[in-house]
């Protein structure tokens, strides 16, 4: 995996929200590589900063969010050094994004055709007619039935699954090199989710693009990603090839996530929940951020935040358990 040149490199990205209560570090030093042609999954629970990280890549943060440090290298250039005008050229053209809520992500007062063709008109200077023709091709590509009719319809006339297909058509209109999919199927029914995941996979193979999938669902990671990073409280706690991570999660948080899932192959009366809840970003514990909920936590965990350190080829873990000085058990229990 590591031999492939990454299409996007995120280095020590820091994004904060400046509120009345002070600075909230939503993304607090994230370093990640997105493999070319592959799919990177970023998984974590709500509030872990995964969506903020995704929005930071395209600099689409809402007020009062601000990128305060780091680099985002795309095609050997740092996106964070680019002007707003240069970024506009990249958005929707080289890097595209689709969002969680297909029901509200399309503008209700414009037709599907108007919204897709807009991408062609701004990035490829196409005329109206040509842009519509291309939009129709895109609708066909994403498998929408009777695309000619849909082109002239408004979003409210489409179901959630169809709207997400339209979002995908719009995002892929200019054949981007990278697609960021932020919880693309969370709002959809499970049978429609299967359709959309299949579609993204199919288009990825056809168009040869790379994908970042942001999700809370480990099942989706298992099915779509070749590499995965686990986020907790604004930092990455573990990163590995998907198969390895699922076979042998090293971080207690990752293991805890697996253990709290209901399993069909193991009849368990009680699930192994992770105790407590995610700490507030404004009030982080001093040591390891997971330490208050970690069953393996020792003295050092409560005092010092561990570094993300390599553990075998292509694998990174942020945990004291794997440091030389650790006295306790080096096994993290999990049911995979």
């Amino acid at each position: 995996m590591s031999s492939v040149e990454p299409i996007l490199q995120i280095k020590d990205l820091r994004t904060s929200f400046f509120t009345d209560a002070g600075e909230v570090k939503a993304v607090d030093g994230v370093t990640l590589d997105v493999p070319k042609g592959g799919t990177l999954g970023v998984v974590g629970e709500s509030g872990c900063g995964k969506s903020v990280m995704a929005l930071s890549i395209l600099q689409l943060l809402d007020q009062p969010g601000k990128i305060v440090g780091g680099e985002i290298i795309f095609n050997h250039e740092d996106l964070l050094q680019k002007s707003e005008k240069e970024m506009r050229y990249i958005r929707g053209n080289n890097i595209s994004m689709i969002f969680q809520e297909p029901m509200t992500s399309l503008n209700p007062v414009y037709t599907i055709g108007e919204q897709i063709s807009e991408s062609y008109r701004i990035h490829q200077n196409m005329g109206k007619k040509e842009a519509y023709k291309k939009s129709l091709e895109m609708l066909k590509l994403v498998g929408i039935a009777s695309p000619e009719k849909r082109l002239h319809q408004y979003p409210y006339e489409l179901s959630g699954g169809m709207r997400q297909r339209v979002m995908i058509a719009m995002a892929l209109a200019c054949r981007p090199d990278l697609l960021i999919a932020d919880e693309p199927t969370t709002a959809l029914d499970v049978t429609v989710q299967a359709q959309i995941l299949e579609l993204i996979r199919e288009l990825q193979a056809k168009l040869g693009m790379s994908v970042i999938t942001i999700t809370h669902d480990l099942g989706i990671v298992a099915e779509t990603c070749c590499r995965v990073a686990v986020m907790y409280c604004g930092i990455i706690v573990e990163e590995a090839d998907t198969e390895e991570l699922f076979e042998n999660p090293k971080h207690p948080y990752t293991a805890g996530l697996f253990n709290s899932l209901p399993r069909h192959d193991l009849e368990k009366e009680e699930l192994e929940a992770i105790d407590g809840s995610v700490p507030s970003l404004a009030d982080m514990p001093p040591g390891c951020r997971f330490s208050p909920r970690c069953r393996y936590a020792e003295e050092i965990c409560l005092q010092q935040n561990p570094e993300l350190t390599p553990l075998g080829p292509g694998r990174m873990v942020r945990c004291w358990i794997y440091s030389d000085g650790w006295k306790g058990t080096k096994e993290v229990a999990h049911y995979v």
Partner: peptide, 27 residues
Amino acid sequence: INQDYIRTARAKGLKERMVIYKHGLKN
């Protein structure tokens, strides 16, 4: 301005002026 479709318009690479006047104002 806080609606999802405004974010979609920005993600498309539209100029802020277009985002506001074309996608925002009409709504």
